[in-house]
């Protein structure tokens, strides 16, 4: 890991197994061989983020361009995604949460497409980076906190004051609630990036073992199985992120337990 030992690593690798499970997460410039990545450099991150936009546009705009009463396949899928998130927001956050449906839909579609695009071979998974998921989680956290205070004023603090608990317990519970509230963005972001990163890294480790002829069939089987699991994880993590966003939004709109 440390820079000073990498020379020795390479010497060892030349004859034996080569594991670079984390290399797939390296951010590199697309054009030129500039080694430094500036803020506006066009990198593989830019490319795959752009592709997620393309995917969203393909499905949600081009897929629905016919506005058919009897939907085509792509329109059907777009309507399914719309209905899925719309129902989720309505069920979890309530009718007054529907105002924020486009924001939640944006988060859901971005995460779901970033996750699935990341499953393509040789691709770059933007959602495997904490930098990305932390921005998403902090956006949710800040929006929800500000919204809570704007909508409820100081009444938003009743979220931490569990009125149904015995009076003696309430300060303790308030402390716990406060801590759990501030842990939300951390768990929210690490859950997504951690799941995606771990799955991709495990696939790479199995791929490394495929270099040994005897093990390679099992290795390929394991990769296949992991890939199946990762498809599941790609959707479930997008779903979890979205539904937690709805839950947090519900807390902001209706802070009273």
């Amino acid at each position: 890991m440390a820079t000073e030992t990498h020379g020795a690593d390479h010497a060892a690798e030349s004859g034996a197994l080569v594991f670079h499970p984390m290399d797939q997460f390296i951010v590199k410039p697309l054009f030129g061989d500039a080694s430094t990545v500036g803020m506006f450099t066009i990198t593989n991150v830019t490319l795959w983020l752009f592709l997620s936009i393309v995917a969203v546009v393909l499905l949600m705009v081009l897929g629905t361009s016919k506005r058919a009463i009897v939907p085509s396949r792509s329109q059907s899928v777009a309507e399914l995604a719309y209905g899925f998130v719309y129902k989720m927001v309505e069920d979890v956050a309530g009718k007054d949460g529907l105002k924020y449906f486009p924001y939640i839909m944006t988060l859901f579609l971005f995460i779901v497409f970033a996750n699935f695009l990341g499953l393509l071979p040789m691709s770059f998974t933007t959602t495997s980076h904490f930098a990305v998921t932390v921005v998403l989680a902090m956006a949710v956290f800040l929006t929800v906190t500000i919204l809570g205070f704007v909508k409820n004023g100081a009444g938003f603090l009743s979220l931490f004051w569990v009125a149904s608990a015995p009076l003696a317990l309430r300060p303790v519970l308030a402390l716990i609630e406060l801590i759990s509230y501030f842990v939300r963005p951390v768990s929210h972001s690490i859950r997504l990036a951690g799941n995606v990163m771990a799955g991709h890294a495990v696939i790479k480790v199995f791929a490394g073992f495929a270099a040994i002829g005897l093990i390679s069939p099992f290795s390929i089987l394991a990769i296949t199985a992991m890939y199946g699991l990762e498809i599941l994880v790609a959707f479930i993590q997008a779903y979890v992120f979205t539904i937690l966003t709805c839950v947090y939004l519900k807390d902001a709109l209706h802070p009273h337990h």
């Binding site: 951010v27 990545v37 500036g38 803020m39 506006f40 450099t41 990198t43 991150v45 830019t46 983020l49 752009f50 997620s52 936009i53 969203v56 546009v57 949600m60 705009v61 486009p102 924001y103 839909m105 944006t106 988060l107 579609l109 971005f110 933007t126 980076h129 930098a131 990305v132 921005v135 998403l136 956006a139």
Partner: peptide, 17 residues
């Protein structure tokens, strides 16, 4: 770099949607 491009992506997706 990641944050910059992500924010742009989210804004674009939001407006498209």
């Amino acid at each position: 770099n990641q944050v910059f491009w992500l924010v742009i992506t989210l804004i674009v997706i939001y407006f498209v949607l």
